[in-house]
Design a protein around this nucleic acid. Structure first.
Lengths: 238, 238
DNA sequence: TGATGTGATTTGTGATCACAAAATGAGACA
DNA sequence: TGTCTCATTTTGTGATCACAAATCACATCA
């Protein structure tokens, strides 16, 4: 039962350099990425209404790919469709934020612990670089820069853990919190407070200490959730 | 800053009976549910190719809603789009199955522990009913019945935990394992083996013992993953 | 002044069609 | 017999259009 199929690709006959296959990128895919990025960097307000045709004009595409991208985001829970079919950005309740926090601690704690046992010096170099980028962003009060490097920091760690499916799930949880970043003022107090946990994560990984990494990741998540809860509570009552 | 908007719905002036709002169910939504159900009950083989127009004929719908439903499933990871755009059911590798298993233990363990602290006698009645339905299905070797009542059993427990977002994530992880059930023969040995853990879950919940519930849920997941791994390994090499 | 009904506009949905690219299969040739 | 070539078919994508339902704006009346 071996090799019943013919080989999919014939071997190169003359010497040709190796290439990665070109990326397949449909319009829907581009729209999806742009929207996701917009969500993650807090450019949409929680609860904000969006219209398919409006986004189509803004992005210079026809309504069809917009619709598909929005439905993908709905499947991930980042977008809500009202009972009458209108589309809006989700606005987490405090209960839901706690829910996301607990799920994140369970999953990201596990990834952090695994990462500590697998991290290489190359990985550490990248993680430290992201950490330092975060520090300078905090220093200059650059909210967008902070969000980007914070994302890169965690993403690199979870990549090391080598759990692609769990990582995808974790990133979908991050996506849910994205709109909350809209409320994040760049005054920096929230950002600065997060660096203590980040330092602990970095050090635990460098020491290869799994349990410490898990604890530090959980600290970070708890602290972030507390900050966002405060912001959210203020806008909910206002 | 209170009540700037006028009330969305005016109060009824004459006495009108209370109704649940009519359900909004688009063709896309129906297709999505049918496909999801088919996936969960193992009616698609792992790696199987599907075509939009083929499904459209089979379901009696136009290609458009099929496409959107498939893209939603892709966003959840249940369906894969090849580099040339063809569509197929995902076929988990052993590594990925382990990944799903670990994520499930982290999340479902948490939900089980929470459920133990919140379960009411009404909940227990439903959980026990699902447990008994599972037992009779195992006895008669009814694979579909087993899958349905197993799903109902866990779903009810996670509902009690009252974490809607985590529950959605968990169900998306179940969806990933769905196609593996295609390989499940109804001889019953795998099914019977699972009942020990299910009994432990039931008893821990009845006793309100959180840690025991967590442990039992994890046992169940470990055992199920081991069974599926075996089946999967057999087909991968064959 | 505020509630109510009516028409115009906006909006999401889904069907149809054209298009490009990939898969398929038949036939030619070594 | 196996390999290559080329025409045909299949397939996913995205644009356009018609339709129904929801929303909005405004005139009307109590």
């Amino acid at each position: 039962m071996v090799m019943l199929d013919k080989p999919k690709r014939r071997a190169a006959q003359s010497s040709v350099p190796a290439f990665d296959p070109v990326e397949r990128v449909t319009v829907t895919e581009q729209v999806y990425r742009r929207l996701k990025d917009g969500l993650m960097t807090g450019r949409f307000a929680p609860g904000q209404k969006v219209a398919i045709r409006g986004l189509a004009d803004a992005l210079g595409a026809s309504p069809m790919p917009i619709r598909e991208a929005l439905h993908r985001l709905q499947a991930e829970g980042a977008i809500e469709i009202t009972q009458t079919g209108r589309i809006r950005i989700v606005s987490l309740t405090l209960e839901q934020l706690r829910d996301v926090r607990d799920a994140r601690m369970a999953l990201e704690g596990m990834l952090g612990e695994r990462a500590a046992a697998r991290v290489t010096s190359d990985d550490m170099a990248e993680i430290v670089a992201a950490y330092e980028a975060m520090e300078t962003s905090v220093g200059s009060g650059d909210r967008e820069g902070y969000l980007a490097s914070n994302f890169a920091f965690h993403r690199r760690i979870y990549f090391v853990a080598d759990c692609r499916i769990t990582q995808r799930v974790v990133e979908s949880l991050w996506l849910l919190m994205g709109p909350c970043f809209f409320l994040l003022t760049p005054d920096g107090s929230h950002l600065a407070r997060s660096m203590e946990a980040h330092r602990a994560i970095r050090d635990a990984l460098a020491a290869g200490d799994g349990p410490a990494a898990r604890a530090a990741v959980c600290d970070d998540i708890m602290q972030a959730a507390a900050s966002l809860s405060l912001l959210l509570a203020k806008t909910k009552e206002g």
